[in-house]
Measured scan of single mutants.
Amino acid sequence: MAAGGDHGSPDSYRSPLASRYASPEMCFVFSDRYKFRTWRQLWLWLAEAEQTLGLPITDEQIQEMKSNLENIDFKMAAEEEKRLRHDVMAHVHTFGHCCPKAAGIIHLGATSCYVGDNTDLIILRNALDLLLPKLARVISRLADFAKERASLPTLGFTHFQPAQLTTVGKRCCLWIQDLCMDLQNLKRVRDDLRFRGVKGTTGTQASFLQLFEGDDHKVEQLDKMVTEKAGFKRAFIITGQTYTRKVDIEVLSVLASLGASVHKICTDIRLLANLKEMEEPFEKQQIGSSAMPYKRNPMRSERCCSLARHLMTLVMDPLQTASVQWFERTLDDSANRRICLAEAFLTADTILNTLQNISEGLVVYPKVIERRIRQELPFMATENIIMAMVKAGGSRQDCHEKIRVLSQQAASVVKQEGGDNDLIERIQVDAYFSPIHSQLDHLLDPSSFTGRASQQVQRFLEEEVYPLLKPYESVMKVKAELCL
């Protein structure tokens, strides 16, 4: 049975990233139509530049190519590739079939990587351009969430054990800070992308030097003109047959890092959902379990974690691919890159769409948070109580021993009897502590235990987050809708 299948058929496997999760716009960027249309555009740009620099290419040939950029006979191309065992030459023939007058000058002087690699770089750039505003929107939604809850005390956790208090907004800023680093890295790697350009079979530009009869300047002009037509500021000066596969490492490393950030955020949300302090959106008709109707599973956060793990592992592909590119190139890269580049971007696209949807509907339960604080705060307040007693004339050592005994009794009630923490009640009825009984409410005010959390939130948002989001103001209103 021949390899390949009808990918629109229910009898043929289709990647869930495309069929179930990723956005239509990201799927289109990695589609065959987008790819092969870009090949034709690159052939047109090459012909236009070659004509401008004096090669015998007519206006009629150029116009014929322009008129057929979208006229792609995919069936013919597939048949040609089956016959020739070469995808680029299959599309040269297919393009030439609908451009008979231009057929002889299509791909003039070029090698397969002229269309293959340059198209990949265009796709990487455009895919990054799709991700950047999506990530900015996630940051914006979380920034709104953090600002609104900047002063809401909550129990902090280290080692997932109760620690000092923080605020809900401050905790959210930990998430935002990681995503801001990801946004900066995505922008950097996007701006650092260079075009492969017009380089020939081993990167020496020998074929173009021959076409222009040894004119170095025209060869350099050709490279520059096509690079500018493709919208790049610069091209690699040095290439082998391909652009260095280190570029793929750079791009997928940034995406993998984004995956790590999203995994951490969504894990926190899942843990908070278990504590009943916070939940992701839950639709009115949504079913959490087929057997347990009360369940409210954090399905979206779980999906993000599941896909983020996949995204983090994909960076190993370009690392290994770059390491086995012998001399000017081997074909070890080809099949692998067809999979890992598309999957990385479709996965990143999915987790950003999902995280935006989550961040637009996060639900906080202040009463649950308050109750958990009441359970733990008495123990945390013991040092403040000791200091207040010393100020009232008591002995630190005597007070410490009193607190120690009462704390152990209260802990026994919590752990052995399943009761509430009654340390404060014990202190309130103990005559030894009568000098500070009137101060206990103040000493137990949760806001006095959150330090500068709310001020940190305000400063972080104003100095770091809002300036970073400013270039994306025009796209901030787009909502994230999930079908599944």
Rank of each mutant, 00 (worst) to 15 (best):
G104M: 08
A431R: 15
S207P: 01
C99E: 15
A3F: 14
S334R: 06
V315W: 15
V92S: 05
L258G: 06
R338V: 01
H7V: 07
K477W: 10
A2P: 12
Q428Y: 07
H217T: 11
G116Y: 05
S334E: 01
I123K: 02
K101S: 02
P133T: 12
L252W: 13
G96V: 05
H91K: 07
D268Y: 02
E213T: 05
V254N: 15
Y294I: 10
P10D: 14
E383V: 12
C180A: 01
L346F: 04
L255S: 00
D144L: 10
V198K: 14
H310M: 03
N353R: 11
G96S: 01
Y13R: 12
A388R: 05
K218T: 08
Q164M: 08
E277A: 06
R14Q: 14
H442P: 10
E64T: 12
V226C: 11
L128S: 14
I269R: 01
V168C: 02
G156P: 03
M312P: 09
G104F: 01
S359V: 02
Q375L: 08
G197H: 02
L255P: 03
T347Y: 07
P467H: 07
M65K: 05
S412M: 06
I72E: 05
G259D: 03
D420A: 08
L131G: 05
G169W: 04
M76P: 02
I62M: 12
A392V: 15
D333Q: 00
A344Y: 00
L406Q: 08
D422N: 10
Q375F: 13
E463R: 09
P378E: 13
L179E: 00
R188H: 12
D317Y: 01
F208C: 11
W43V: 08
G197D: 04
N336L: 05
L186H: 08
P16E: 09
L124R: 03
Y21S: 14
R338W: 08
H97V: 13
D32N: 07
F212N: 04
A392T: 03
M89E: 10
A49H: 08
I123V: 10
D178R: 11
F28P: 01
A411M: 12
L222D: 01
Q51R: 07
S290E: 08
R83E: 08
D73Q: 03
R396I: 04
M181Q: 15
D422L: 06
Q51W: 09
L271I: 07
L482R: 11
L252H: 09
G109E: 04
Q177E: 08
M380Q: 15
K101T: 12
A392Y: 01
A22Y: 14
D268M: 11
S207Y: 03
F145I: 13
T347L: 12
A206Q: 12
V478T: 00
S67H: 02
V405C: 12
P100D: 06
E48N: 10
L183W: 04
F145H: 14
F327K: 02
Q455V: 11
I427L: 04
F232R: 10
H97Q: 05
S334Q: 03
H97G: 02
Q286S: 10
H263K: 10
L55D: 06
Q428H: 15
T119E: 03
L444W: 13
Q61M: 09
E360Y: 05
S112I: 13
H7K: 12
P133G: 02
P293M: 03
T201H: 14
D317C: 13
L124C: 03
I373F: 01
I238G: 00
E280L: 00
H217N: 13
E376R: 12
W43E: 04
S395R: 10
A411N: 15
A335K: 09
S454K: 01
R396T: 10
E213A: 13
L331H: 07
T204D: 03
Q285V: 00
D441K: 06
F212H: 05
K229Q: 00
A348W: 04
E473G: 00
G116F: 05
E79C: 05
I287H: 06
A392D: 14
Y243V: 14
H400D: 00
S19M: 09
A103I: 02
Q61L: 08
G200V: 07
I287P: 02
I436R: 09
F236C: 02
